[in-house]
């Protein structure tokens, strides 16, 4: 190690937040889940809301998300996280309830729960990880899988006739009057991480001000499912995923900023 002499508390620029537990995350090397977890935990720490934060974990790769957040948590059945969050938030209006869901959980099996929680304008934060594939079960097609993309259940590539179209659920949710803040971000570069953190912070601030549903999509990688090393997967994501799922705010302060 170089510059051992500057390793002093007063020189600290960045360290892992204590709102993450000490558990080693089970995610594959380079997976965006870990980065997104870190961002959420940092926002909770910075806002001083650890005692009021309640995490609702999904089913999928992030089924064990509750092992990593040092906040009280619940594991939901597949797709049902927004229903749990609805009840918890209504029963505890001053808490900060957030769901953390993947594309299969949120945009396939949990579509009804997602749409209706957003349509009621539940005062919750939804963090949506979109990597276009089912990671946990071994890389099958997700609702957000791109056309032509090979997965375990689309071995010849996603075919519209057979499988329909990729679901842009975030754009769909932005149309609902209950959503107050809808954005799509990513975590593949330092700049992207900073933007995502800002968006997550905005979401929790909106919740504090009881503005309704805040929805943050994070377009992410799936190195194992896409069968690429992490840096390569990030490049592929920029080239392919961002074309279908463009990065940026979609709805801010209750107003659509994108068509």
């Amino acid at each position: 190690m170089f510059n051992q002499d500057i390793v002093k508390p007063e020189n600290l620029v960045y360290k892992r937040t204590d709102v993450l537990t000490d558990n080693v995350m089970h995610y594959c090397p380079g997976c965006g889940h870990g980065t997104t977890h870190r961002i959420i935990a940092e926002v909770i720490e910075e806002m001083g809301i650890q005692d009021k934060a309640i995490c609702v974990a999904p089913v999928g790769c992030s089924v064990l998300a509750y092992n990593y957040f040092e906040v009280d948590s619940l594991g939901a059945a597949h797709g049902r996280a927004p229903a749990l969050a609805t009840a918890i938030q209504r029963l505890n209006p001053d808490h900060h309830v957030f769901t953390y869901q993947g594309d299969g959980d949120l945009a396939a099996i949990g579509t009804a729960e997602t749409i209706h929680a957003c349509n009621r304008g539940e005062n919750i934060v939804i963090i949506f990880i979109n990597n276009g594939i089912y990671g946990m079960t071994g890389g099958q097609m997700a609702p957000t899988t791109l056309i032509g993309m090979k997965t375990a259940t689309t071995p010849y590539g996603r075919n519209v006739e057979l499988n329909g179209y990729p679901l842009q659920i975030t754009e769909l949710l932005a149309q609902l009057p209950g959503t107050y803040f809808v954005t799509r971000q990513s975590v593949h570069t330092a700049a992207a991480v900073r933007k995502t953190k800002k968006a997550v912070r905005q979401a929790f601030e909106n919740q504090k001000n009881k503005k309704g549903t805040s929805f943050v999509e994070v377009v992410s990688n799936c190195n194992s499912g896409w069968k690429m090393p992490a840096p390569k997967a990030n490049e592929w994501m920029v080239e392919n995923m961002f074309a279908k799922y463009p990065i940026g705010d979609i709805k801010v302060d209750g107003e659509l900023v994108q068509k």
Partner: peptide
């Protein structure tokens, strides 16, 4: 190293601690 923390920002496992001389 310039202590910019870009590495720590993108680290999924939060294993990097960054220092920078003032």
């Amino acid at each position: 190293c310039i202590g910019c923390a870009s590495c720590a920002m993108v680290c999924p496992d939060g294993v990097i601690t960054v220092y920078k001389a003032k």
